[in-house]
Design a protein around this nucleic acid. Structure first.
Lengths: 165, 165
DNA sequence: TTATCCTGCATGCCTAGGCATATAGTTCCT
DNA sequence: AGGAACTATATGCCTAGGCATGCAGGATAA
């Protein structure tokens, strides 16, 4: 690239935020962090970030259904079902028939899945700290964290951005 | 979902940030916003957000090469080439042979492409404001914007999270 | 009960991106 | 000049997710 373009975005302005610029920065950060975390998790544990997130969710919410995961991650039911297929094929997750509604299954980690997620979490947390701590550990970090927590709550409350399937 | 899980993430704590929790909030917000923006742009202009971002980049950086786009968006060269193929097929973008290096092309918007991106930008900006202004327009908004601008600069400087291809 | 409607999810088809490779064009050395 | 080494990107194959559909199971009402 001949000339960097983030100079404009990093101007410190008063007045209302440049929302499109903020969103662009956000998406670029998310993409790059996700890619970098993928690399580390893949080389050390043979999984990618999305799989880590599934496993972590199931550790923290045992007995969830496919639809619960789909809502949490704002992806389609079909995609979620296929994602669970892949984890089940590796024997990290088991589907057990929901006794109170036999259309659905209750999902749980296996012992191997639990062990994996614990190991992967250490890698994940360490990598994330290395990648972001310098900036996010600064004085404005908590404010940013608070904002995204709130925004997430609002988006979930209003069911914004859920796919069809 | 039986019980919401973001209660934990929205605790206001002192001390260092819960980075994994922050990252999770970030990714959820990004996913949902991206999905919601996709919906609006698709129904009104027949494009999705990634295409809007390509077009906007080309408007703001005429004569870019494929590799420039790939770096900007932290995606692979191949994917970028295919993305440009699709925009070119719609006659929104033209490749003209780079006179100083005939391996590459210089990319530009057509008149139709320019018209499209201007219209789509209005939709995009309006939708983004509707979706986020309540939260991001608050007092902590500028701090958050500043943090992501800085984080982006650092990630780009260190070339974090670029795909292989 | 039983016919009808509703739900949860598994599956098929389609598209987009990652990675590997192929190829044309460029640079460097001699 | 001639060839080795490098570079930009187009292309093929593979995987993951979106959307539509199918079907088993559950809820509802007569």
């Amino acid at each position: 690239m001949q000339d960097k373009i983030y100079a404009m975005a990093s101007k410190s302005s008063r007045g209302p935020i440049d929302l499109p610029g903020f969103f662009a920065d956000l998406v670029r950060c998310e993409t790059r962090l996700y890619n970098a975390l993928n690399d580390r998790l893949r080389e050390r544990h043979g999984i990618v970030t999305s799989q880590f997130e599934f496993l972590r969710f199931l550790r923290d919410h045992p007995g969830s259904r496919v639809a619960d995961l789909a809502t949490e991650f704002a992806i389609g039911i079909g995609a979620t079902s296929k994602g669970i297929d892949r984890l089940e094929k590796q024997a990290w997750v088991i589907r057990r028939t929901n006794p109170s509604d036999r259309r659905s299954s209750l999902l749980d980690l296996t012992a191997a899945g639990l062990q994996l997620v614990e190991a992967a979490e250490a890698t994940f947390t360490k990598a994330l700290a290395e990648l972001t701590a310098d900036v996010l550990g600064g004085p404005s970090g908590p404010a940013a964290a608070q904002i995204f927590s709130e925004l997430r709550s609002v988006l979930e409350r209003d069911q914004i951005g859920l796919p069809t399937g």
